[in-house]
Design a protein around this nucleic acid. Structure first.
Lengths: 343, 343
DNA sequence: ATGAAAGCGCTAACAC
DNA sequence: GTGTTAGCGCTTTCAT
């Protein structure tokens, strides 16, 4: 026997004694195949172990492939989104394929183009940092849903979490505990468009707004670094060097909070005894006993589910007006925040 | 203007005043295109913004796509492997697309078949749990490299880390610190084939062997649960209930160690004061200050690099004999292990 | 409801 | 070195 040539639609048609058109129709549950036809064809498919070639399908119709672009793989929050996506696609003919990029614009362009080249039926872009121009271009080539980036476009749908409100939840919580000198570590952003659209910017805004609302405008204290462990470490060092150091630090992301904790330890301090610390994202490790970080849960799973829903919708009706879905976050209180001792 | 039909190879050929063959050859850097031809064609490609359709290419030649299957997304160790993979592919025409499955056999079958259907040029399977029969089947359909699973096959290459030796490193370390009652929490496995091939089984074997080698055969104490946080928690509870409880616990994976720490805290104990704890994998969170877990570094990055190398090799020369690459792990000593106090 | 036939965009085999 | 042509395996008109 030969190195097993793949079974094609022709083999199935011949085996079932029907036309390839018929097989194609059955495969796609398309209109125009009698029940008997269905039975015959399905039997042949089963017997021969036929699986359609996605490449060949893609040349005429769909590829039944959804692409998901992630900024990185190490933030478990993205895994939550993906769970929502794949779960909702379970049982359908669609397959999700992901690509993680390197958090840089060139990488995002490469990946999105690769997805378009591969005739994917739709793409979900998670927290993209590309220019709006590029996002538009992608969206015009393939049905697109952008997750975790605010702002709206006539070409793609968006699913976001209310980062502004989320930051407010943290500030409210800390104020309730008696804190006033609450500092924030943000991810530096200068690009004006992204300044409005990126979650990190919204969190900083939300922090500012909530501080004002509590009459703590004078205590607003923001350090700009990056959403990395290193960024948290450096940010906290700056804050600890203040003449009047803060009693609470709200890190813009859980991973940032890890760096903050490192800096505290190094300075001989600890949370929450000396300083309360809160993060954002409710990543897996936030729940670990020795860490037990107070943080904000973004409902990643729900974001994923909503993203696919919008996407499949758009695959079906290309031209429909775009939608923006905004979900609401919840505060997860753990052991790194506590009532202030000496106000 | 129309909803922009994609630019095809015909458009480019016409624009450059050459044949489609010529364009195709230039695209693939294939033999038989003069320098002037190259220039002309490249100019036309540039001007028209042409990008070849992967679907169409796949129907005849390659798709320039490498598929990577991951058992899950939340273990950062897999991200290390992927970094190695993508980094090594940087600058080539290949694109990596991943799919995470649900740690179950049916999911793995679905994903591998999806990759085959999509005419991927090669696949890298990370820590697959499927039957050998299925792996063989996949490998016969598409060039395959299996990562993180021992055993060898005439059809696929393997890249593994020496889990047996890694477990030995941990035991040696703990013995050096004066520990004798060193317990191990393993991932339960009954399937006889996987019992030999899966890393978890090798770690348990390595533990057993090392204990014997140190004359501590009588102290061998293995609890079978699962490689999850919950598994670690339950396993530790069992161990703490022993009449003579262990002075050190070697968890088969970092995530298991997290569960162990939870159980210790709950019992009013802590590491390393009361019990030393070691993990395996050196995942990102093992390095976090409040955790600071002693663990084993598997050099995931190197595994990734080696996997692609083997894969591209096999894509070029399909029939070549298979290779097995085994890397050596290193111990990462942190603060959850310490010299024994009262032996 | 069914099937014949014309492509989809590319590559490979073959002429020139 | 270059161009012509025949498919790759499907889906989609369009007859019947």
């Amino acid at each position: 026997m030969h190195p097993s040539r793949r079974v094609t639609i022709i083999d199935v048609a011949r085996h079932a004694g029907v036309s390839t058109t018929a097989v194609s129709k059955v495969m796609r549950n398309a209109y125009g195949a009698s029940p008997e036809m269905q039975v015959k064809v399905r039997a042949a498919i089963e017997e021969l172990g036929y699986r359609p070639s996605a490449a060949a399908r893609g040349l005429r119709g769909q590829t039944y492939t959804i692409g998901v672009m992630l900024p990185e793989m190490r933030n478990p929050f993205f895994a939550d989104i993906l769970d929502g996506v794949t779960e909702h696609l379970d049982g359908t003919d669609y397959q999700v394929l992901m690509a993680a990029c390197c958090n840089d614009e060139a990488g995002e362009v490469r990946i999105t183009e690769a997805m378009i080249d591969r005739s994917m039926d739709g793409v979900i872009l998670i927290a993209p940092i590309s220019s709006r121009r590029h996002l538009q271009k992608v969206a015009r080539a393939v049905p697109t849903v952008v997750v975790g980036r605010h702002g709206h476009s006539p070409d793609y749908d968006t699913v976001t979490d209310d980062d502004f409100a989320g930051a407010g939840l943290v500030v409210d919580h800390l104020v309730t505990l008696g804190h006033q000198r609450i500092a924030h570590i943000e991810h530096a952003e200068r690009n004006p468009v992204r300044l409005k659209e990126m979650p990190n910017a919204q969190r900083a805004d939300g922090y500012r707004h909530a501080m004002q609302a509590h009459g703590l405008g004078d205590h607003i204290d923001i350090v700009s670094t990056t959403y990395t462990q290193q960024g948290g470490y450096l940010g906290a060092q700056q804050l600890l060097a203040r003449p009047q150091r803060p009693t609470a630090i709200f890190a813009g992301a859980d991973i940032v909070a890890m760096g903050v904790l490192d800096a505290l330890t190094e300075a001989g301090l600890s949370a929450p005894q000396d300083i309360s610390v809160a993060g954002y994202d409710d990543t897996m490790f936030a729940a670990f006993g020795p860490i037990s970080l107070t943080t904000v849960d973004q409902a990643g799973h729900q974001m994923g589910v909503n993203a696919v829903r919008l996407l499949l919708d758009r695959v079906a009706i290309r031209g429909r007006p775009t939608a923006q879905i905004k979900l609401f976050p919840t505060l997860v209180t753990r052991r790194t925040t506590a009532p202030i001792v000496s106000p």
